[in-house]
Amino acid sequence: MQKKIIKSSIILFIIFIIGVFFTGLNKSSIYDTKNLVGQKITNIKLERFNNNRIITEEDLKKNDFTLINFWASWCAPCRVEHPILLKLNKEKNLKLLGVNFKDKKNNALKFLRDLGNPYDDLARDELGKYSINFGIYGIPESILINKDLVIIKKFIGPISQNDYTYIKNTVRE
């Protein structure tokens, strides 16, 4: 009797392990931070692009929704998402905060002159240090937050047409 229990529990254990391996096979092994939503962003400190005034939490609390977009003039995919950002700029409940990432000031200004400026407010992160506070690991990356500074969604890579629809629907609700 005792032997039987041992036998069947060992076999069940093996089945469990194989089952896990089997399920694991179909999961992507590439990591991203998309699932890290729902937490509140704190300790915001961003230098404004044009003057030295600091953008703080208070500034962001004024908006119903804010899309924080990390970009640079040297980043090719940023050009891809730019037209969508321009469209998003027209949303009433949404403010766009651009963070210029590890970029030269002149290049960034030229980029905005050439392609248009979608941002309601523009900050600058010369060394990329502030971006760590937002959990950024490559650009372009954007974060949608609400009034309470809680992250609703993270967009890794350029914002797509689907993402646009999602953002539009979210802020209009």
């Binding site: 590890k102 060394l127 990329g128 240090k129 760590i132 490559g138």
Partner: peptide
Amino acid sequence: EFAQTIKLV
């Protein structure tokens, strides 16, 4: 790029 930034932070 990412590693460089993390190093600074």
